[in-house]
Design a protein around this nucleic acid. Structure first.
Lengths: 201, 201
DNA sequence: TTGACTTTCGCTTTGATTTCGCGAAGCTAG
DNA sequence: CTAGCTTCGCGAAATCAAAGCGAAAGTCAA
């Protein structure tokens, strides 16, 4: 989406104006700067800029122009859904409404990622410990060996390693003092796969 | 959400007032400053500012205006300085010029925080493994038990647990197959203390 | 209770944005 | 070259939001 020369000039002027004044110029002011006799002209330029993604604006709102800054490294915000038991499955995921920001490198598809606070030490041998935040990508399938959030029996969420053999699924804790859970694949619902981890000391 | 000129003026005045007096102006005072005859006008401006996220206020409380500091979207960027050996000290910290953004909850003082990529498995029992990114707060002193980045003999950076007994310092790897380093306090320079950890699968 | 504030209501004015239809240039493909 | 496209420009009318007034009612803290 390339701009024409005129559009570029208008865009630059708007940016400059906003930078300087803290509010956006009116169509008339823009027109005056370019010696244009009709605001309709300015309006059309702005529509093009919006269409091409260089500007955002609210409809029919005074001075609502906003240059779109290509925030290269804007941190995605994802919801913190609740707590997941790393040990025996004790509680399901529950909505808590919080949200956190995570580094982009931990994220796959932005819309389908969420965070859970880990409870218990059952994944300790995978270096996931109590209190850690795991970044989970929402998926309904997993590959062998991946660490997953799984719903067993429809109501208990748990964090385990996933292995499938035929129609049987093994959910293995990374803790040698604990036993794997082995159930029919139909009784397990994969909620997501762990993509990242954040720990705060 | 862009402001109109008037809204920006009002907002600026409120900020200035708060800055100067330590409390927020009343509607009447704001009105007086702009020669407005009705507080209703001021009230409307403030409602817009609140709606656009520039101001917060308590309902029906005198002088409860609070300019919203843009801290929410202002994400701390910290430099990724290089690699630190979690095992035997093999290489010093070296500048690589990269930088990453981290969640605010991992940060202490923004200016004095940096990240290092961990190499080796010597901190494995503290659930820090090869490839992890540790968030380090720059400090020259540490308390017993903290995980630190230390310079031993002036040139080798290493990640260890810190224990001090008198003038002796013990740097303990969290890996039972490895030996602690024990040296005079004068030979150890603490570079920083680990505050957080980020792992990407 | 009182007085210092904030909310809310209806109404007017002012200022900006939208939308119309029209025309002149300029680019581009057939 | 030229038909068909897009950009760029004009001006006027319509529409809507912002910005203002004054008065009355409601709240809170002291």
């Amino acid at each position: 989406m390339a701009l024409t020369r005129r559009q570029r000039e208008v865009y630059d002027y708007i940016c400059e104006f906003v930078e300087e004044n803290g509010y956006s110029p009116s169509l008339e002011e823009i027109g005056a700067h370019f010696d244009l006799a009709s605001v309709a002209t300015v309006h059309k330029h702005i529509q093009h800029l919006v269409a091409k993604g260089f500007l955002r604006k609210a409809w029919n709102r005074s001075r609502s122009l906003e240059p779109v800054t290509e925030e290269v490294s804007e941190l995605p915000t994802i919801p913190l859904l609740g707590t997941v038991a790393a040990g025996s499955p004790i509680e399901a995921i529950e909505e808590r409404g919080e949200s956190i920001r995570v580094p982009a490198q931990l994220m796959g598809r932005p819309q389908e990622t969420y965070a859970l606070k880990v409870r218990g030490d059952s994944m300790i041998e995978d270096q996931i410990c109590d209190g850690d935040l795991v970044i989970v990508e929402s998926r309904s399938e997993a590959r062998n060996g991946e660490t997953v959030v799984a719903l067993v029996g429809g109501h208990d969420a748990t964090l385990k390693r996933f292995y499938r053999a035929g129609s049987q699924v093994k959910l293995v804790p990374a803790n040698s003092t604990m036993q794997p859970i082995e159930v029919a694949a139909s009784d397990v619902q994969i909620q997501g796969v762990v993509r990242g981890l954040i720990r705060s000391y």
